[in-house]
Structures are given as structure tokens and as C-alpha cells.
């Protein structure tokens, strides 16, 4: 799929830094992911359809949801007043998302890893969000601010070629 004649396209979105606006941001990110993956929404007329079956879309949306949650909860403490600036760069085979906030910095190094041996007794009830984001994406970086900056990057795997290019019809 050609992105603006081969050039990367930039999408800017600013939303209030509360969970009330999360779904708006998630929908924009899901659509941006589809531009890279070439996937088609199951039912574009159904605004309540959370359709992220494509592996690329699934990874991007899953990771973004966790980082948005993190900003709203940890940076802005679930309070109104802050903004989240989201910059999405859509390239031929890659999606980059920058998420900027002016809240409290997050201690990324302080996130405990998941238990190595998982069974009924060690099932975690928290601390999974960063693990999901890091595992789903090719790159997750965080620069404490102000402003604090999360940078997320996902490349389209070689075997998953976007619609309109060779290898997938």
C-alpha cells in the first residue's frame, strides 16, 4: 500500500488525559494500523465493533491501550486537566506512535517482571500492561520529561505483506 506516494504520513491527535477519551484514541490508532497492515474492518458501519484480528493491528492496539492507561493513571492520576499528545507516523511497513504527557514521570525500571513460572498461585492481578506493550511491539522507549514521551514502534513482519503489495491479495 502506498502511503502518500511513498512518503510517511503523520497523524496528530490531542485528547484530554483521562480514560473517558481512551476509546477515541484507540480507534484512531486502530485505523492507522490498518493503513500499514492493509487489513479491512469486519463491519466498518459498526462503530462498536472492536475488530483487531489482524496480527499487526492486534499488537499495535493492545500495546497502545496499555500505554494510554498508564499515562491516564500514573501520569495524570485519573484526574482531569492534562492533555495527551499523540503523534502517529504511518510508513510503508512501519507504524510509530509517540505519546506525550505533562504529568508525573513513570518509573519504567521499577516495573516488576512477570513470574517466570506461572501457575494458579502466581497468576498476576496487576503489572501486566508494560509487559504486554513491550512484548507486542518491536520498540518501546520512555523518556521522562516534562514532557514525558513514550515511543512505540511496530514493523510489518516480512511474511505479512500489506494488501496492494506483492504476496497478499
Amino acid at each position: 500500500m502506498a502511503i502518500l506516494g511513498g512518503m510517511a504520513a503523520s497523524i496528530q491527535l490531542t485528547v484530554p488525559g483521562t480514560l473517558r477519551y481512551r476509546n477515541i484514541a484507540v480507534r484512531v490508532v486502530a485505523e492507522a494500523a490498518r493503513l500499514v497492515s492493509g487489513s479491512v474492518q469486519r463491519d466498518p458501519t459498526d462503530l462498536l465493533d472492536h475488530d483487531v484480528r489482524d496480527p499487526f493491528d492486534l499488537a499495535v492496539v493492545s500495546a497502545f491501550m496499555e500505554i494510554f492507561n498508564n499515562v491516564a493513571i500514573h501520569a495524570y492520576k485519573r484526574k482531569d486537566g492534562g492533555l495527551i499528545d499523540i503523534s502517529i507516523t504511518v510508513a510503508e511497513r512501519e507504524l510509530t506512535i509517540e505519546i506525550k504527557d505533562h504529568g508525573q514521570a513513570f518509573d519504567l525500571e521499577g516495573v516488576a517482571p512477570l513470574p517466570t513460572e506461572l501457575d494458579e498461585s502466581t497468576l498476576p492481578e496487576g503489572g501486566m500492561g508494560i509487559h504486554i506493550a513491550k512484548t507486542m511491539l518491536d520498540e518501546v522507549t520512555y523518556e521522562p520529561g516534562p514532557p514525558n514521551l513514550w515511543r512505540l514502534r511496530k514493523r510489518l513482519p516480512a511474511k505479512q505483506v500489506a494488501v496492494g503489495t506483492s504476496g497478499r491479495s
Binding site: D49, H50, D51, V52, V61, S62, M65, E66, N69, P124, E125, G126, M128, G129, I132
Partner: peptide, 9 residues
């Protein structure tokens, strides 16, 4: 259709 870590929890 969709879950995040809060839903998993």
C-alpha cells in the same frame, strides 16, 4: 473482542 490488562486482572 478486546481485552486489556485491567480486563485480564
Amino acid at each position: 473482542d478486546l481485552i486489556d490488562s485491567s480486563g485480564v486482572a
